[in-house]
Amino acid sequence: MKHTLSVLVEDRPGVLARVASLLARRGFNIHSLAVGPTAEPGMSRMTIVVDAPELEQVKKQLHKLVNVVRITELDPATALEREIMLVRVAAPAGKRGEVLEIASIFKATAVDVGPSSMCFQISGTPAKINDFLDLVRPYGIVDLVKSGRIAMAREQKTKPGRLRAVN
């Protein structure tokens, strides 16, 4: 089962290695990981998607890292989740129109055109990106790169599940 963790960390060298090493120690595969600065100076946010049956113990272990400030597990059903993808699709002159038509439905932008292929940029939910990929796959995917997933909780009526300690 995939879990999305939003981890606020101090922006220090080696923090990524500490977090990754801890997940590796538990044998968890990191599905995707995105790191970037936050609005708070000196702090970074990691959005980590991991494949694991349950995360309670790992969240507690992650909290033991001195540079980890806050961990929030985001519910995929309600959280805002986004990815960005660059995909180069095989599209010789005769096929460009069809491919562009699909792209326009998905609001994917053509960012490069060559004699035999076109490159699109698309952002959105992981589901939307996968749907777009399914539709262009028959034309032939030459190359593909995805950002890690980034995610944020929606404004909640109930208190978000912040994990500081057991009690």
């Binding site: 113990q57 507690k60 272990q61 909290h63 057991v166 009690n167």
Partner: peptide, 14 residues
């Protein structure tokens, strides 16, 4: 250490 609680045995009162 909160990570010790519930690691091996569930606690009724942590």
């Amino acid at each position: 250490d909160p990570a010790e609680i519930g690691k091996v045995r569930t606690a009724d009162v942590p």
